[in-house]
């Protein structure tokens, strides 16, 4: 029977920590970029402009259809050939994952907006608020409450998707784990440790999702 040996952690914890920092940094920055793109997509789709709306639809279709791994490889290896610029693994992964995630986030936001009855917005207008005030004070806090569990779900997905960047040599958790394995020859232990780290962070996010349902987002306005 195989006997596990976790003593390697004492020698390599700082390597895991470095990988974890890169993973979290990539997940957070990807999510922030995807959110900004998603907001732009929502504004375009809700603007009623037929041409821009079609362009947004095509964008969503293209980046939803291409697997994230293909996007990462293509952006890292092929894009420099066309643009004549070398992208770092972090930037390539950031661009690929942001493009990949943004259509999904935009759809969550649109669903959140559509779930708010039109009368909520109209009653604000009738009470003298302008369109921006009605959106800010009446619609936005309700949309945020609706979409927060979805957004956190996408963040969890993104956190796990960062491991795809190991293919282009980014020193995120999976990549540093592979390096540790090449030194220790302890793949089961290292991958178990890796799984535990992901579990810890995803568990923390799950708790945050549950708490988010109790938040009144009027505090943000």
């Amino acid at each position: 029977m195989y006997s596990f040996n976790f003593l390697f952690i004492f020698s390599y914890w700082h390597v895991f920590l470095a990988g974890l920092i890169v993973t979290l940094l990539l997940a957070l920055s990807t999510f922030a970029c995807a959110f900004v793109i998603a907001i732009a997509l929502v504004v375009i789709k809700k603007s009623g402009n037929m041409i821009l709306g079609k362009i947004a639809d095509i964008y969503s279709f293209v980046f939803k259809s291409i697997p994230a791994l293909v996007m990462i490889i293509w952006i890292y290896y092929a894009l420099p050939l066309f643009l004549n610029v070398a992208l770092s693994p972090f930037v390539a992964a950031l661009v690929a994952l942001s493009l990949n995630l943004s259509p999904f986030v935009s759809e969550s936001i649109i669903s959140g907006i559509n779930a708010i009855p039109k009368g909520q917005y109209e009653s604000a207008l009738l009470l003298g608020m302008n369109k921006i005030q009605a959106m800010r004070f009446v619609v936005f806090p309700q949309v945020l409450k609706n979409i927060m569990p979805d957004l956190m779900g996408w963040f969890v997905t993104e956190l796990k998707f960062t491991s795809l960047a190991s293919i282009i040599g980014l020193n995120e958790l999976l990549h540093v784990s592979n390096i540790i394995i090449s030194h220790t020859f302890l793949p089961f232990e290292v991958y178990t440790m890796l799984a535990l780290i992901y579990l810890l962070f995803v568990g923390a996010i799950e708790i945050a999702v549950k708490r988010s349902k109790r938040i009144n987002y009027k505090v943000l306005i």
Binding site: P141, Q142, K218
Partner: peptide, 10 residues
């Protein structure tokens, strides 16, 4: 309105 449109977050 016929449908009550109170703002639930206030």
């Amino acid at each position: 309105f016929q449908e009550i449109q109170l703002w639930p977050h206030f």
